[in-house]
Design a protein around this nucleic acid. Structure first.
Length: 592
RNA sequence: GGGGGCGUAGCUCAAUUGGUUAGAGUACCGGACUGUCGAUCCGGGGGUUGCGGGUUCGAGUCCCGUCGUCCCCGCCA
C-alpha cells in the first residue's frame, strides 16, 4: 500500500483507548517544536488529536517530524497514552490522551497556506473564495457542510415516510418568458434554438401530478439570471414538493412536520404546531412586509381615522387623496436625539416616503414634535390610546399611498429593531402568510401581473371577482416565513383549463400566446388533471437560518460573487472559437 | 442601472494637516529549547499602498477615471 491505512479518526480516541496501538492520518495544523519533544495537532473532519514525537520513542520518526509544516498530509503510528498529569487539555474532546508516535509517513507536503485553517481568523471573503477548498477545510465550514448533508438526508427520509417519491426533472428545458431571466443553453443540433436551465421544476411537477405520481419531491437546483444578494445566488437549491387531491392545510401539515423535525433534531428547537397563520393584508398592515419578523414588537397601526379632520395639512391631504397614515410606538424612544431622529427621517425619505413625523412623549408629561402645534388634545389622547403610548415613548408616523406607507414604515420597523437591539437571538418565529392577492397591478405597463405565478389557483370564494374586480381576487398561495426571511412559497394550482384560460387572459396572455408558451401544460390539464398543489422551500436559506449565518454563501460550497463570478475557477470564461462555431454563435462584439 | 462601505507585506490591520527610509501582529525562513496546546526566546527576509492619470517641491493620504469585493435599492412570476 502506498500509504499507511488509518485505524481511527482524529476525533475518535479517548482515555479508554490508552495503550492501544493506532494509526491516524490527517492534516498537520499546529506544530510546537521544543527542540527535543515535538507536538503536532493532527486534524481531520472529526476533530484533532495531539501527536507527540519524542527523541527516545523513535529517532527516525522524531527526525522526520522536524520537517513537518502546516497542512502537510501525514500518517502517524504509535501508542495512545494518557497525558501526563497537569497537561490535560479540557478544551478538546481528545484532550485526555495523546498519540505517542514511533512512526511518521509524510504522504503529501503542502504549500504554506495563504491563511491559517482555523475559525477564529476573520478573512476577507475574496480571499476565502479564491482558496475555497482551504476555507472549507476550516472546522465551522466543514460543520456547515455536514449540517447540509444531514438536513437533506433527513428530508429524504421524512418525505419518503410520508409517501413521497423523489423524482428528477430535466435541466435542459424550455424557456418560459414569465418570471426571472433565464440562463440559456444553445443547441448544437438545432441552429438558433436554445434550452433554458430551469428556474424551478414547476411545470414538470404539475405534469407529474397529471401522471398520477400523487406525491412528488425533489431536492432541485434552480437557476435564475438575476442580481445577487446575501440570500440570493444564481443557482440555489429548493426542497420542491407537489401533492394531488390536496388543500392548503395538507401542504401545511407536511411542511410543518418536516421543518419541525429538522429544527427539533438539529437545533433542539420545539416548533409550535400548527404554525401561526396571517393573511397578507394583516401582515402588510401590522408589519409593513409580506414576510414579517415576529421576534419583536413595534407593531404598526393605522392612524388615518385620528387625523381625518386634522389641522395638519400634510396628513389631511394625504388622507383625502386615498392615502394612509401609519405609525408605530417605540418604547423608551423619547430619549432618541434630534440627530438620530433626523437620520431616521432621512432613512424614510430614501425609502421613498415624504418623510417621518415623530412625537416624543417625555417623562413628566411634556411633548416634543415638529407638528406639536397642529395636534389637538383629542388627537393626542386617541394616539396614546391607539398606540398604547406612555411617557418615555416615541411615536413615529408616515403618511403616503397605503402601499408606500406600509413599505416605508415596515422598513423603519426593521431598522429600529436592529438599531435598538430589539432582535432576540436564538428565537425562531415561524408563520404562514396566506391569502396573497392573485394579481398585482403594474402601473407602468398598465396591466396585471401574477403575484406568485400564472398557475396559482384563485381563492374559491373570489372566483366571481375574476370578472368584476380582478385586483381584489385572493389566491390560494402561501409563504412560509421565519424571522423575516421567506423560507418558501407555494400554492394550490389551477387544475381546470377554463380557469387557467381566464387567468391568462387577465394577465394579457392571449390564447395563441398561451398555447405557444404553455400549450404543453394546458394540454396536460385537459387529460384528467387532479386538484394539486405544492411548495418549494429554499434549502440554502433554511440552512443559513439554522446555522445562525448571515449569508447563504456560507452553506454553498463554491458560491458566486455579487458579479456572478466564481473566484475559485474563474467562471464565466471565454471559450474556444470552435465551440462557438459548433453552436452557431457569433459574438456581436469581440471580447476585450 | 443606482446608492454606500472596503482595497496598504501571504493574512489581519496601523500610518496626525499632504512631509524623513510605509509600521505592528501573525505567517514564513534560520538559530536555541524535552511537556507544549495561540509554546517561548533570539535573528532575518518580505511592499508596483488594486490599476491608470492629474494637482503638488513632495501623494498611502487630495482630485478624476477604472477594476475588484461586500451591503442595499431596482431586479428576483
Amino acid at each position: 500500500m502506498e500509504f499507511w491505512k488509518r485505524s481511527h479518526l482524529c476525533g475518535d480516541l479517548r482515555l479508554s483507548d490508552s495503550s492501544n496501538r493506532v494509526t491516524l492520518s490527517g492534516w498537520v495544523r499546529r506544530r510546537r517544536d521544543h527542540g527535543g519533544v515535538i507536538f503536532i495537532d493532527l486534524c481531520d473532519r472529526t476533530g484533532l488529536t495531539q501527536v507527540v514525537f519524542s527523541p527516545e520513542a523513535g529517532s527516525d520518526a522524531h527526525r522526520a517530524a522536524q520537517e513537518l509544516r502546516s497542512e502537510f498530509v501525514v500518517a502517524v503510528r504509535g501508542e495512545v497514552r494518557p497525558r501526563p498529569e497537569g497537561t490535560v487539555n479540557p478544551k478538546i474532546p481528545t484532550g485526555e490522551i495523546e498519540l505517542f508516535a514511533d512512526g511518521l509517513q509524510i504522504i503529501n507536503p503542502s504549500l504554506t497556506p495563504p491563511f491559517p485553517i482555523e475559525d477564529e481568523e476573520e478573512l476577507q471573503e475574496e480571499v476565502r473564495l479564491r482558496y475555497r477548498y482551504l476555507d472549507l477545510r476550516r472546522p465551522s465550514m466543514l460543520n456547515n457542510l455536514r449540517l447540509r448533508h444531514r438536513v437533506t438526508a433527513r428530508t429524504r427520509q421524512y418525505l419518503d415516510g410520508e409517501g413521497f417519491w423523489e423524482i428528477e426533472t430535466p435541466l435542459l428545458t424550455r424557456s418560459t418568458p414569465e418570471g426571472a431571466r433565464d440562463y440559456l443553453v444553445p443547441s448544437r443540433v438545432h441552429p438558433g434554438k436554445f434550452y433554458a436551465l430551469p428556474q424551478s421544476p414547476q411545470l414538470f411537477k404539475q405534469m407529474l401530478m397529471v401522471s398520477g405520481v400523487d406525491k412528488y419531491f425533489q431536492i432541485a437546483r434552480c437557476l435564475r439570471d438575476e442580481d445577487l444578494r446575501a440570500d440570493r445566488q444564481p443557482e440555489h437549491t429548493q426542497i420542491d414538493l407537489e401533492m394531488s387531491f390536496v388543500e392548503p392545510e395538507d401542504i401545511f401539515r407536511v411542511v410543518e412536520g418536516l421543518v419541525g423535525t429538522l429544527f427539533g433534531e438539529f437545533r433542539g428547537v420545539e416548533m409550535e404546531r400548527p404554525l401561526k397563520r396571517m393573511t397578507y393584508a394583516e401582515a402588510m398592515l401590522k408589519y409593513g412586509s409580506d414576510k414579517p419578523d415576529l421576534r419583536f414588537g413595534l407593531e404598526i397601526r393605522e392612524a388615518g381615522e385620528i387625523f381625518a379632520g386634522s389641522g395638519f395639512r400634510v396628513f389631511r391631504e394625504t388622507l383625502d387623496s386615498g392615502g394612509a397614515v401609519r405609525g408605530l410606538a417605540v418604547p423608551g424612544g423619547a430619549s432618541l436625539s434630534l440627530k438620530q431622529l433626523d437620520e431616521l427621517t432621512e432613512f424614510c425619505r430614501r425609502a421613498g416616503a415624504g418623510g417621518l413625523l415623530w412625537i416624543l412623549f417625555r417623562e413628566g408629561g411634556g411633548l416634543k414634535s415638529p407638528i406639536k402645534k397642529f395636534l389637538s388634545e383629542g388627537e393626542l389622547n386617541r394616539l396614546r390610546e391607539t398606540f398604547s403610548c406612555s411617557e418615555g415613548d416615541c411615536l413615529m408616523l408616515v403618511a403616503d399611498r397605503p402601499e408606500k406607507a406600509a413599505e416605508v414604515i415596515g422598513r423603519l420597523r426593521l431598522k429600529l429593531a436592529a438599531d435598538l437591539g430589539l432582535v432576540p437571538k436564538d428565537r425562531y418565529e415561524f408563520l404562514w402568510v396566506v391569502d396573497f392577492p392573485l394579481f398585482g397591478y403594474n402601473p407602468e405597463e398598465k396591466r396585471f401581473e401574477a403575484v406568485h405565478h400564472p398557475f396559482t389557483s384563485p381563492h374559491p370564494e373570489d372566483l366571481e371577482l375574476l370578472e368584476t374586480d380582478p385586483g381584489k381576487v385572493r389566491s390560494r398561495a402561501y409563504d412560509l416565513v421565519l424571522n423575516g426571511t421567506e423560507l418558501g412559497g407555494g400554492s394550490i394550482r389551477i387544475h381546470r383549463e377554463q380557469v387557467q384560460k381566464q387567468v391568462f387572459s387577465l394577465l394579457n396572455i392571449g390564447p395563441e400566446e398561451a398555447e405557444s408558451r404553455f400549450g404543453f401544460l394546458l394540454e396536460a390539464l385537459r387529460h384528467g388533471a387532479p386538484p394539486h398543489g405544492g411548495i418549494a422551500l429554499g434549502l440554502d436559506r433554511l440552512l443559513m437560518l439554522m446555522g445562525g449565518l448571515s449569508s447563504i454563501r456560507d452553506v454553498i460550497t463554491f458560491p458566486k460573487t455579487q458579479k456572478a463570478i466564481c473566484l475559485t475557477t474563474g467562471s464565466p470564461s471565454e471559450v474556444d472559437p470552435r465551440q462557438l462555431k459548433d453552436l452557431h454563435i457569433a459574438l456581436a462584439a469581440p471580447p476585450q
